[in-house]
Design a protein around this nucleic acid. Structure first.
Lengths: 114, 114
DNA sequence: GCCGTAGTACGACGGATATCGTACTAGCGT
DNA sequence: ACGCTAGTACGATATCCGTCGTACTACGGC
């Protein structure tokens, strides 16, 4: 039997009003995390393992947590996977143009022409 | 006597092409440095001591160096003072809209209504 | 020449960060 | 029930970062 709990494993997300500019900038100041954000900007949602970071699983978990705790991404469990997506609306409301500028800069200067 | 050297004390600035997005984002991810950048965005030029960071002189020097080495500001010696200014054109060329978005976000959310 | 002011250099120190490996838990499929 | 896959937790470690104080250098004025 089971009481069908809707959210077994819950994840801490900062409220929109708690998101701080410095934290977001810090979260974005790492190549691996920029890569994740850029990836998520393309599709809507992705599992952690689908994004290749060339680091160990624990390190990957760490980077996703930094992004989540800074308020950059939102994560939910779906089956055995943990899906991540950008908090685009929240970020655009709080810091208009910031995400777009970072993404554009990243594409222009960090992706060496695919 | 003196051979009148044009630049006694020289300061290392990254070339425009060497400025990296991660470094800029990291440089901007500290409240004290954001404060400096915001201050410099107002006037054109300022000496280090004119911007009150509420930290010791050495710490202040450190923050200015981080900003300079990331390519965010340019510094020159003028007499006993060291003047700093934003590398606005370089940044706008490399990362269009980024500085503006950060400054706007800072004013909106980090300056508690002066 | 001497002093004051502006900033640097250096070393220390505590706290955060990036990284890893290993051992663990949660769901899914068979 | 069993095992596979996805991700977590935890501890270790090395490095970086923000901060400070003290001792130093550079320039300008008296």
């Amino acid at each position: 039997m089971s009481s069908a709990p809707p959210q077994l494993r819950t994840l801490d997300h900062p409220d929109s009003a708690e998101i701080r500019l410095e934290d977001v900038l810090h979260a974005l100041s790492d190549p691996a995390r920029l890569h994740v954000v850029h990836y998520l900007a393309g599709g809507g949602e992705a599992s952690c393992s689908e994004i290749d970071l060339a680091v160990s699983k624990s390190t990957s978990t760490h980077h996703f947590r930094v992004l989540r705790e800074a308020g950059v991404i939102r994560q939910v469990y779906r089956g055995t996977a943990k899906m991540s997506c950008l908090r685009r609306e929240d970020l655009d409301t709080l810091f208009p143009g910031l995400l777009e500028a970072v993404l554009r800069a990243y594409e222009t200067r960090c992706v060496p022409r695919a």
